[in-house]
Design a protein around this nucleic acid. Sequence first.
DNA 1: GTTATAAACTAATTAGATTAGTTTGTCAAT
DNA 2: ATTGACAAACTAATCTAATTAGTTTATAAC
Lengths: 191, 191
Amino acid sequence: MGAKRGLDAQTIMNAAAELAEQKGLENISLLQVADKLGVKSPSLYNHLNGVQELSIGIAKLAVSRLENAIRCAAVGRSKGEALMGIATAYRKYAKENPELYKAILRFPDYKDDNVQEAGHAVVRILYQVMEPYHYSEKETIHFVRGFRAALHGFVSLEEAGFFRGTSADVNESYDQLVDRLISSLTDRRES
Amino acid sequence: MGAKRGLDAQTIMNAAAELAEQKGLENISLLQVADKLGVKSPSLYNHLNGVQELSIGIAKLAVSRLENAIRCAAVGRSKGEALMGIATAYRKYAKENPELYKAILRFPDYKDDNVQEAGHAVVRILYQVMEPYHYSEKETIHFVRGFRAALHGFVSLEEAGFFRGTSADVNESYDQLVDRLISSLTDRRES
DNA sequence: GTTATAAACTAATTAGATTAGTTTGTCAAT
DNA sequence: ATTGACAAACTAATCTAATTAGTTTATAAC
């Protein structure tokens, strides 16, 4: 029977990512991924070493798509405008791919250089955008950490449903948060 | 055999929380919780309806402890000082209880009034602290959402290991972030 | 003391991950 | 064109975990 050579790791990751977005990150199994691909679950072991590698693969996929989205948002813009564009793209990505977005969080643990590398991609774009401000390296790092934390915190609390109780416009809350941080930057420059 | 009446839901949650902190939130099972309590896993079903209720229980526990920690941090302080105290206590809690902290995120989904209630506890303290600023209700909500998002985002990226690559002091990054937000508040008042 | 019941138990089913060992296409060298 | 090696699929089996059904037993109320 065995129809040969149908699969590779990338195909598996794509199928898994799609399944994750449909059924939730927690609810995917090798069994279901294999089903979706028309093979038996042990066959997947020819291309990956168990379910943890599946998680890593999904996380890499998620990060590289996020990186792409925010890179696009930054081109042709600078300083505050670029940061605002990145913030908007970041939240848009998280809203459109909530399960993939969650996958990003649970992965720097994996001590895989390749993965570490991917994890820094988002930050590297922010460093580039920060260049025109001429901050010191340390000051840049501090700001970028905070900025990214704010974006991540907001979108993940939003997705988790923490902002549902109150009526105030969530877009407005996000804009205000991002504005506060960007303003704190320009204020410093002008002082 | 059956030794009777040893358990209740609270005892189970406490054991589960302890186990979660030891072995990781993902790695706890009813089997292990039951073992730790000296019973068989089906016995747990007399006190809860499956593994999801265990998650809910752990989450409630985690939130109520967090609420307690930040409430203590706020007493006797006001405005910026109170917000800074809360920020410090928030991060301290997350660092000391990383697994419990993670549990908080995956729970507002559960449509349980009791849980929703607990989820708002942290925010309610922030509303109280904001009162002296005399912001409108909507403005208060916007700020509180952003503030909380920043705290959450920072501690969860930190715990996930996203700040490991660079050498800059992480405490300093956090202080700067919180300062930026608090300053943006007082600036507004003074304008 | 008897009895009802809650709380424990055992046994069995299901889903999932993983390993071992087997089969079968495909490709490359003859 | 044939064949032999290997990669990639397979089946079978094991293990862990959740969950359900049905049974037993301690205790509290009478």
